[in-house]
Computed example of a mutant assay.
Amino acid sequence: MQGLFKALAFSLLLTFALPALAQDMAPIDVNTADAELLQELPGIGETRAQAIVEEREANGPFESADDMTRVSGIGATTIDGFRDQVSF
Rank of each mutant, 00 (worst) to 15 (best):
E54K: 06
E40Q: 15
R56A: 10
Q85C: 11
E40M: 13
D66P: 00
A76L: 08
A58H: 02
T32G: 06
P27N: 03
E57P: 05
I52W: 11
R48N: 04
R70H: 06
R83N: 08
P61G: 15
E63D: 14
D66F: 12
E40P: 00
A51K: 01
A22P: 03
D24H: 12
A9T: 14
A33P: 03
S72T: 14
D34N: 12
P27F: 06
A76W: 08
D24R: 13
P27Y: 01
P61Y: 13
A17V: 15
T69P: 06
A9E: 09
M68L: 04
A22I: 14
V71H: 04
F10P: 02
K6S: 15
A22D: 13
G75I: 04
A26T: 12
F16Y: 14
Q85N: 10
S11R: 04
L14P: 00
V71G: 04
L14R: 01
A49C: 03
I79D: 00
R48T: 12
D24E: 13
A49L: 01
G3W: 15
R48L: 14
L18G: 03
D66N: 11
T69L: 10
R83M: 10
N31Q: 09
D29K: 01
A7W: 12
L21S: 07
A7K: 02
M1T: 12
T32K: 07
R83L: 11
M25A: 15
L37E: 14
A51F: 06
Q50I: 13
S64L: 08
I44K: 00
Q50F: 09
T15D: 00
R48K: 10
M25L: 15
T32Y: 10
M68Y: 05
S11K: 04
R48V: 11
P27A: 08
D66T: 06
A65M: 08
S72D: 15
L41E: 05
T77P: 09
I28C: 07
L37M: 09
A65E: 07
L8T: 02
Q23N: 11
I79Q: 06
P61K: 14
N59D: 11
E40S: 14
D34Q: 06
L14E: 05
G43W: 07
M25I: 14
N31S: 04
L38C: 09
N59M: 04
K6P: 10
R70I: 03
V71E: 07
P27H: 00
A58R: 00
P27W: 05
D24P: 00
A51I: 03
T77N: 09
G73V: 06
N59C: 03
I52S: 08
V86D: 03
E46H: 10
E40C: 12
E57T: 04
V53E: 08
A22C: 12
F5A: 14
G73F: 12
A9D: 08
M1G: 15
